[in-house]
């Protein structure tokens, strides 16, 4: 994954609660066997007026009412969202689609657990801030064309245009991984001896878990 330290970028507001991963990337686009190509179908049902099947991306009609299609939000890299963002299916295609579209951080009052984990593992930063701050951000973004904030993972703060610092927290281990762009498999394999030792102990305590070998 790409490392993340600090980003100043345009904010796009998605004013809905409980945005689920079926909405983020509908199932008809989950059939690919690679990690790329999902960005064009991010929020597909809301973003386009016609169905994607049987049409190339260029032939489709964007929905001008959908917030991502509005000219003032083009190039946005920070998504402002409401409570329980990313609920539902565990599909990692959701963070892959968001990242490919260009989103690097999401600010919301809460996230669903699996989406939250999947995002961190891909360097997409899920930032939890209080409801009142989210309400204020929705008002300010709406009122201010070109509204941009700075997300600083090093100091764990979102810096607003007026200099206000909104602190947030990411678990120290996860923060380290994202700052350095580390992957979990490589990290885990340095503890190979511990895993083997655990297995030896379990073979004695709970031998029925190893019967197929």
């Amino acid at each position: 994954m790409d490392a993340f330290e600090k980003l100043t970028a345009l904010v796009v507001p998605l004013d809905r609660v409980n945005v689920d991963t079926d909405a983020i990337i509908p199932k008809q686009y989950l059939k690919a066997i690679g990690r790329a190509g999902f960005g064009a179908n991010l929020f597909d049902n809301w973003r386009y007026l016609d169905a994607g099947e049987g049409r190339t991306d260029a032939e489709r009609r964007p929905n001008p009412e959908f917030v991502l299609n509005k000219p003032r939000y083009q190039g946005a890299q920070i998504l402002l969202a409401r409570a329980n963002f990313g609920c539902g299916s565990s599909r990692e295609h959701a963070p892959w689609a968001l990242l490919e579209y260009g989103i690097r951080a999401i600010i919301a009052p809460s996230f669903a657990d699996i989406f939250f984990n999947n995002s961190l593992k891909n360097g997409l930063l899920p930032i939890i801030v209080p409801d009142a701050v989210v309400d204020r951000l929705f008002r300010d973004v709406e009122a201010t064309p070109g509204y941009a904030v700075t997300v600083d993972l090093v100091s764990e703060a979102v810096v607003l245009p007026d200099g206000t610092r909104v602190p947030f927290q990411i678990d120290p281990f996860r923060r380290e991984c994202i700052l350095r762009g580390l992957d979990d498999v490589g990290w885990t394999l340095q503890y190979e001896a511990d895993i083997k030792q655990y297995e030896e102990r379990r073979r004695i305590e709970a031998p029925w878990l190893f019967t197929a070998e």
Binding site: S90, N117, V185, I195
Partner: peptide, 30 residues
């Protein structure tokens, strides 16, 4: 798959994971 929670009915700790985690379990069992 998020509906892995189903298996908790047996007194097992069961939950859904993303694809990066699928790879991690395949490679490290952890």
């Amino acid at each position: 798959d998020s509906h892995t929670s189903t298996h908790g009915a047996f007194g097992a700790l069961a939950h859904g994971i993303g694809t990066s985690e699928v790879e991690q379990v395949l490679a490290t069992q952890c």
